[in-house]
Design a protein around this nucleic acid. Structure first.
Length: 203
DNA sequence: GGCCAGGTGTAAA
DNA sequence: TTTACACATGGC
């Protein structure tokens, strides 16, 4: 199925809207840190505002080393503002522990983790996996979220499966840019899509 | 007071 | 493989 506009044209459209400035190289707050992993799960079906309320409570536990030492019950209290705390707390602790056991720290996790490994973790689906890879590990993975789907719908671009959205968004970008540029481009592309939604609220 | 938000896992058809 | 539902808060 081919569409009138390619993802590259959409990227250029957004860049021309002055949105590149609002989407610095890695748009996610504290990109490249373990905090991205926490945020990826906390923000599931939850506003970023509510995630920030939890981050305030977690301010002394945002590194992998300190986070794994938390008790489940105290974590539930701290992430309460983000909702779904009964399932997010155990999933976050399991994930953090698994990262420690498998990679012996966040640095090696960043370099060596695979999409498959992330998707095998309870509580991580496609969007969270790609969010962690793109913004936490600086990998060339495009995030498909409700913002992205809403944005594409404006151009009558719709698919059934998440993977189809991802392929469409990545394809023409991969052709245009060098491999080593892709992590930054995908990060900016997704960041611009979110900022565009905020600029012109879509439904 | 109802609806939504930067989803995911599970069970059932 | 697809669909339906539970999970829960804060803001408008």
């Amino acid at each position: 199925m081919s569409h009138e506009k390619s993802s590259l044209e959409l990227y250029e459209f957004l860049a021309a809207e002055d949105l590149l400035l609002k989407s610095p190289e890695y748009w996610w707050p504290d990109a490249g840190t373990f905090k991205v992993v926490i945020g990826a799960i906390l923000t599931q079906n939850t506003t970023w505002h509510n995630v920030e309320l939890s981050f305030k409570n977690l301010k002394n536990y945002l590194s992998l080393d300190s986070f794994v030492k938390l008790e489940e019950e105290e974590l539930k209290v701290m992430i309460h503002p983000s909702g779904f705390y009964n399932q997010k707390a155990p999933r976050l602790l399991d994930l953090a522990q698994n990262i420690q056991n498998k990679f012996q720290g966040f640095d090696r996790f960043q370099k060596e983790v695979t999409r498959e490994w992330l998707l095998a973790q309870k509580g991580i689906g496609e969007e969270s996996a790609d969010g962690i890879l793109c913004y936490g590990c600086f990998r060339d993975e495009m995030v498909v979220d409700t913002y992205a789907k809403r944005f594409l719908k404006v151009f009558d671009i719709t698919f059934k499966k998440n993977s189809e959205y991802k392929e469409f968004l990545e394809e023409s970008i991969r052709v245009k840019f060098q491999d080593n540029e892709l992590p930054k481009i995908f990060a900016q592309f997704h960041g611009m899509i979110v900022e565009y939604n905020k600029l012109k609220p879509l439904k």
